[in-house]
Simulated scan of single mutants.
Amino acid sequence: MTHKLTAIGFDADDTLWQNEQFFRLTQERFAELLSDFTDPDHLHERLLEAERRNVGHYGFGIKGFVLSMIETAIEVTDEKVPARVIHELMEAGKEMLAHPIHLLPGAEDTVRQLAESHRILLITKGDLLDQERKLAQSGLGDHFDGVEIVSHKTSDQYIRIFDYHGDGATSAMMVGNSMKSDVVPALEAGAWGVYVPHDLTWELEHAPKPDKHPRFRDLETLSALPDLLQQIES
C-alpha cells in the first residue's frame, strides 16, 4: 500500500548551508588570543563545558557562543583577561552574524524539486534574528510552506509542528545533520528520520545512530533524498 508523506522538514545549519565551519574558525582565533594563558586543547574542553552549561540559559547560536567564550576567557585567566581580548571576541561574533550564506551542494535543487510534490518545512533552532537573516539570504525562502525556529528540537515539538503543518508525524520526515536534534526526536515522534552527515558537527549534537529503527535512513548527500522518498512512497 502506497503511503505518501505530506510534510518534509529540513534542518538549516550544516544541512542546507554552512555554519559550523565559522564557529571552528572563531575558536581558532579564540585559542590564539588566549595562547599566553592556556593551550588550545584545554581551552576547547573548557569552552565546551561552558557551552553545555549555558545552553539552557542562552539557547543555541552565535550570541550564546560568544558569551560562553567570554566566560571561559575569564575563568582560564583567573579574571585577568585583557579588555582587548573581550573586545575582539565581541567583534568576532559580529562578523559571524554578518557572514554571507554558502549553500551546501544539492541543497537548492533538492528543496526546489521536493517543493513541487510535498509540503516543505524549515525546522531549525538558534537565534531568531540570525536564522531569519540566513533564510532570507539563502534564496530558499519561497520554497518553504512553513518555518519553525525553536529553542530545542524535541519529540513534542515535532509532533506539534507536523500536526499543524501536515497530517501528523507518521506522515512526515525530518532531514538533518544532527543525530541528537534532527533524527532521534523525530523518530520518537513517529516520523521518518534521515541523517545527512556534515564533515563538521558540534560535539553537543552527537548521539548514537539508531540503526535498528525501521524509519531511520542515512544518506551520503542531500541530493539522494528524492530517490529515497520515491522508495519509501512506492
Rank of each mutant, 00 (worst) to 15 (best):
S181M: 04
L25W: 09
E75G: 05
R217A: 00
T154D: 03
Y58C: 05
V184T: 08
L129Q: 09
E49A: 10
F60Y: 15
S138D: 08
T154R: 10
A12T: 05
F22D: 07
T77E: 07
G141E: 09
H213G: 03
M179S: 03
H213N: 06
E88G: 06
R133A: 00
I74W: 09
L222H: 12
T77V: 08
S151V: 10
W17I: 09
G59C: 12
L200A: 08
T15N: 09
F30E: 02
W192I: 00
L129R: 11
K180G: 01
Y58S: 09
I8L: 12
G139A: 15
A136D: 15
G126A: 12
G56A: 06
Q231I: 13
D13T: 09
P208S: 07
T110H: 02
Y164K: 15
D142K: 15
T38I: 14
F65P: 01
D41L: 14
E205T: 14
E108P: 11
N19E: 15
P214R: 00
H44V: 06
K94P: 02
E49Q: 11
P208M: 04
F216L: 03
D163A: 08
A115F: 07
P105D: 14
R29H: 11
A207N: 05
S68V: 07
L5K: 00
H87L: 06
G190W: 00
S151L: 11
I86D: 03
A189I: 06
S155Y: 02
M179F: 02
Q113I: 08
R217S: 02
I149H: 03
P100T: 14
D11I: 03
A50G: 04
P105L: 13
P100G: 11
T201Y: 04
L140E: 07
V150R: 15
R84W: 14
L89S: 02
V85F: 14
T170I: 05
L43H: 01
I149E: 01
M174Q: 04
G141A: 11
Y195G: 04
S117W: 14
D156I: 04
L140P: 00
L140C: 04
G146H: 10
Q18M: 12
K209C: 01
D14R: 00
L25Y: 06
H102N: 10
D127S: 08
F144L: 01
A98P: 09
R112I: 01
Q230N: 10
A224T: 11
F37V: 08
R215C: 04
A207F: 04
G61H: 14
T170C: 06
I62M: 03
R119K: 13
L16E: 08
F30A: 07
T2I: 13
G59A: 11
G168M: 09
R119N: 05
G59M: 10
D227Y: 13
Q137I: 10
S138K: 13
L89I: 13
G61Q: 14
Y58P: 05
L222T: 09
I62E: 01
P40L: 07
T38F: 12
Q131V: 07
E233I: 04
E32F: 10
P185G: 01
L204P: 06
E148N: 14
H44Q: 15
N54A: 09
K63Y: 13
A189H: 02
E148Q: 14
G176T: 01
L89N: 02
T154L: 04
D227A: 15
L225V: 04
R133M: 02
E28W: 11
R46M: 14
H152L: 09
S171A: 10
P214A: 01
R52S: 07
H44C: 13
H165W: 01
D78V: 04
I74H: 11
T15S: 06
V111D: 03
